[in-house]
Design a protein around this nucleic acid. Sequence first.
DNA 1: AGTATGTAGTTGATCCTTCAACGAGTTAGA
DNA 2: TCTAACTCGTTGAAGGATCAACTACATACT
Lengths: 157, 157
Amino acid sequence: METTTATPWLTEEQQRIWRSFLGGTTVLMDRLDRDLRAAHGLSMPEYEILVRLSEAPGRSIRMAELADAVAHSRSRVTHTIARLERENIVVRGQCSEDGRGVSAVLTDHGFSVLEAAAHTHVQGVHDYLIENADAQDFIAMGRIMQNVVEQLHGKNF
Amino acid sequence: METTTATPWLTEEQQRIWRSFLGGTTVLMDRLDRDLRAAHGLSMPEYEILVRLSEAPGRSIRMAELADAVAHSRSRVTHTIARLERENIVVRGQCSEDGRGVSAVLTDHGFSVLEAAAHTHVQGVHDYLIENADAQDFIAMGRIMQNVVEQLHGKNF
DNA sequence: AGTATGTAGTTGATCCTTCAACGAGTTAGA
DNA sequence: TCTAACTCGTTGAAGGATCAACTACATACT
């Protein structure tokens, strides 16, 4: 006979922390997104994609790899890149050595948009998050989230 | 003569932590949302709303107050409640003492849906987040996010 | 070679969120 | 009291995300 695994309930404190986390990420992301849109017409997900591209050799990454890097679905990346392409921030290129492959390439214009946006974004991260965090606490949070990423990223089960 | 305030750039470490945070929240929220949808047909935002209602006196909260509690726009709450109402999880009631007021009320059916969903949700928070966090680190994260909420919540400027 | 299975990326429908505009009720001031 | 300014909540349109279905290419197996 087996004992069923009871749902591990949360302590009062864990609950408080979880709610702070939920509320905090909500308002933080919302705010960063609004700042970016208002100043540069870019959403956070778009910005993240541009950052990855800007760091890649040739400012170019294949769609699937990009999707994995930002943890979005391939479909989502397709749509996002389509939008960015309309604004000449990115272009699509055929991938050598894989007939199916398509890679997204950051244009010069895209790069300069990103440069401008980076100021707004970094300022926001600094003012809204880092300024609100004790340095040690911030490192502790980094440890946690790094573990979360390692456990969950790419796993759909 | 003034020195212009330069954009405070991030150190390598701050950058790493910020990316872990971004990636971690993305995969974590995504996973919690999927688990909830798969098992109970509820999204995270919907679940959050039901939790607030379940804790309120009369299982009832006014729309504006609800919007503020979960940090969503009023419009968004209107739409979300409309959907939940279609599934008989919530009903709308007139608010005494303010002719404009509408309050959302959790139905008995809604309450039982929530009870079931809570198991899935809490299990997820536990397995994906708390298990990945040293107890002290978790408290540190709570401090940070609490500060973020206090700085940003409700401020749109 | 020929077939089967898997992977890359796209598409269009549907659902959810945002945004601007609105009707209705409330509050404060002349 | 009458009006101006504000708050409450809703609406519909537009933009973005998700999902299932699909084409096309690649790989592995016989």
